[in-house]
Design a protein around this nucleic acid. Structure first.
Lengths: 110, 110
DNA sequence: CGGAATCCCGGCGGATACTG
DNA sequence: CAGTATCCGCCGGGATTCCG
């Protein structure tokens, strides 16, 4: 077999899921989409420091992972809505846990 | 102030904590250290695909974040033990949530 | 034994410009 | 409006070598 890039692969159940969490904006995107379905532009405005190019890439990735839905309305001007899939919803406990942690602990800079 | 590199900084509570989760091995390290205190070599053996250099870096990072303790025994040969801090323990719910998620969903490759 | 110091490479992720 | 295409800097992270 060719490298096959098995992300991590150790005796740790978390290893396989890690890629979801590694992208710089993935979790933030999931966080916002859980609150409500959003159009591309709306989401973009909530993430002022992300370029559209990057946002598009990340959305495609998350879509590929099966976490979000991409619904295109064939009209002019275009309209695309993003929302969480059932799988995406099931990821929320992770974000909630993260949120609670963030609530209590301030992570030091270095 | 100079750039100050405010990692993410959006209206999302998760943003600040994200750095913990981004390092390729950080979560796995936390996972193993939660099970038990480990010496460097022991931890290293549990992560066969990580080089010591990288492992050292990651451990130092997590220590800097306040998540793990580094206890040095001044002796020859050297002995260093790593364990979770109280803060590190509080991070476990996140890993548990992640674990549960991983249990149900297989993340697609792309 | 547990590092520190270097070197190096791929790819994440940002900027900019263009399109249906 | 919601993208694509392209270019590129930067750094995460692997390999290797040396040190107390």
């Amino acid at each position: 077999m060719e490298k096959s890039d098995e992300t991590i692969f150790v005796d740790c159940p978390i290893a396989g899921v890690q890629k979801i969490v590694r992208g710089k904006w993935n979790m933030v995107i999931l966080y916002f989409l859980h609150q409500q379905t959003l159009r591309f532009g709306e989401l973009s405005r909530k993430l002022p420091t992300v370029t559209q190019a990057q946002l598009t890439k990340d959305l495609r990735l998350l879509e590929g992972y099966g976490l979000i839905n991409r619904k295109v309305y064939p009209q002019v001007p275009p309209k695309v809505e993003y929302s969480l899939t059932a799988m995406g919803d099931q990821f929320m406990p992770v974000l909630r846990a993260l949120e609670q942690f963030a609530d209590v602990y301030e992570v030091k800079q270095a």
